[in-house]
Nucleic acid binder design. Structure first.
Lengths: 339, 339
DNA sequence: TTGTAAGCGTTATCAT
DNA sequence: ATGATAACGCTTACAA
């Protein structure tokens, strides 16, 4: 069942090299011969041996998706499913394969990092939502491993795909302002994630643009998890906001629960806008008004950017691609605009 | 940065073979030499070249997770995140790598199947929730590719890990019966998935055990998606059930929505029990009473079974492992037991 | 246009 | 216990 180039060559009455050329679509093969060889290949169902090929070409046709431990607890989030679905789809199209790694821990020498990234088994990697200070990034940079981040990174040299978090958060906040709110609270994302910072920034920008003073007691830090949302809501209550911008849908679920426990009506007493537009956004009552980000698109785009990086001469790899996708405000019930 | 065995050998003043033996923990190496070689390896940060190794050993240390197209639309489900999280964790421990493939379409010769499974790039595969008649399974069997299914399969020869769907569904239904319900509807999973059939079977068993006649008008087929839940609920209403067993949490969300639209109170007018216990189960109002299945555990178990299959002599590979994990009923608000 | 032959970096067999 | 040496299956100059 497992044939080799050699065998195909024998069957076709040509040399190994010719078969190799046929397989790799090299120009210099007589059309007749080419067709004949293909015929045999199809007939016996020959498939080139991946490892042998990699050994010769120094390419594996595999890209990695790395999800650092720091966000591993978020992995169960639908966000990652959606993202991975975009990545795999793009990989299929491009005939690349995808290796998935959850990186756990600082991992010394001989750890996962070396094993995966220094064994030449990956052509490049996509790093999904690392924290700003994740030690992984400097290492990848130092080792000249082609990679793309999902979510921007302060370091100039890091290529990334991202959504317009600042703009999205601004939109969300302005929406609340337009609805007449002045005391708008925010449950932010983690401060060590760029998206967390950016969404906070967008919130501030919106307030400033409308000359609403920024009140620190209306700003509490969350962790993108339900628990963080609940805790955040409770702390926020002390500052008596009339509306809250929650930096993720999952946290918004937590906020909703906390408010319900307190007997506070949403959107009657407090209006809510969040971020992501995951499927759960419409599963809860009231349905969440939220900033939609194209998560699947982000995944496939990450693949595109990485692959374009890969078949670019080394000197051009130095210019880092930076792509930012727009977001969209989806108005539903939780903001109170529907009434 | 990328060293070779040869270099290490030179630096250590030994032969390639000795270094190879050291790396692979072969017995016949003088302890002194062994330590010395390790020292150098660590010092220069040597990492064996994966492809070269595979070429020589016919092993890649990579296992695949295949999710067939038939369920690709379900991929965004938190189920897969949870499952993958279990798989990756187990892989990390076992120092295996994970390749993720979404199989789309029937895919003729030269398609994804051949490319991935006949290029010797995978040691084995985990097939996640295929339909009963998925053509992938016979092919894997025919090609003698080591694999494990998640969810049982009618073919005797197929090794699998599964949860006790029948038992879980029986528990759920009996719970409703115990609460006094007699007209219990069911929104099933797809008939072409084993879990769909099994959960229906459990439902029937419970009714029979309590001498409640099975009423076909109380049985409607769903698709494990929210839309299927909504449609199912609406069709079920004609048969005026006082309770519904929904074969998945996601569908239960749909059922909840449909009932809400009709002004029907849950659990007041109709009680609900579902299956999965995904995080959303507690995000909705009322929180879902549901059958918990250990999804992450299922993933890591699939890895264990597959790996044990891999280092088993071929003749022993013929005996198919079949493992079934228990489920647990989690009582919350939707069944009305809390009141 | 085609074939020959030298790698690619390991492991494994066989001597020693 | 250690070292040559031949695979492993492919790509790619280089020759023809």
């Amino acid at each position: 069942m497992a044939h080799t180039l050699e065998e195909i060559a024998r069957l076709a009455g040509v040399s190994r090299s010719t078969v190799s050329r046929v397989i790799n679509d090299h120009p210099n093969v007589k059309p007749q011969v080419r067709e004949h060889v293909w015929q045999i290949i199809r007939q016996v169902g020959y498939q080139p041996h991946a490892a042998a090929r990699s050994l010769a070409t120094h390419r594996t046709q595999i890209i990695g998706v790395i999800i650092p431990e720091s966000v591993t607890t978020l992995f169960a989030d639908p966000f990652f499913s959606l993202f991975l679905s975009g990545v795999t789809t793009a990989c299929n199209e491009k005939r690349y394969n995808l290796m998935l790694s959850l990186f756990n821990g600082p991992d010394g020498p001989g750890g996962m990092y070396e094993r995966i990234l220094h064994s030449a088994s990956l052509d490049g990697v996509i790093v999904a939502s690392a924290t700003v200070d994740d030690p992984l990034i400097p290492r990848l940079l130092r080792d000249c491993i082609p990679f793309v981040m999902v979510g921007r990174h302060p370091d100039e040299r890091v290529p990334y795909v991202d959504v317009d978090n600042v703009g999205g958060a601004r939109m969300a906040t302005e929406h609340l302002i337009r609805l007449g709110h002045q005391r708008i609270g925010i449950v932010t994302g983690p401060r060590n994630m760029m998206s967390g910072r950016d969404r906070l920034e967008g919130y501030k920008e919106a307030l400033q643009a409308h000359r609403i003073p920024i009140d620190e007691s209306l700003i509490v830090e969350g962790d993108y998890r339900e628990g963080g949302g609940m805790a955040g809501a409770r702390r926020l209550l002390a500052a008596s906001p009339t509306a809250i911008f929650v930096a993720s849908d999952v946290m918004a679920i937590g906020v909703l629960k906390a408010l319900r426990q307190e007997g506070i009506d949403v959107p009657g007493d407090i209006a809510l806008v969040s971020f992501d537009d995951l499927p759960i956004a419409t599963a809860v009552e009231p349905a969440l008004t939220t900033v939609r980000q194209p998560i699947g698109r982000l995944g496939s785009l990450a693949v595109d950017v990485l692959l374009s990086l890969l078949d670019r001469p080394p000197q051009l790899q130095a210019v880092a691609d930076k792509i930012v996708l727009p977001t969209e405000l989806i108005v539903r019930a939780s903001c109170g605009a529907m009434r």
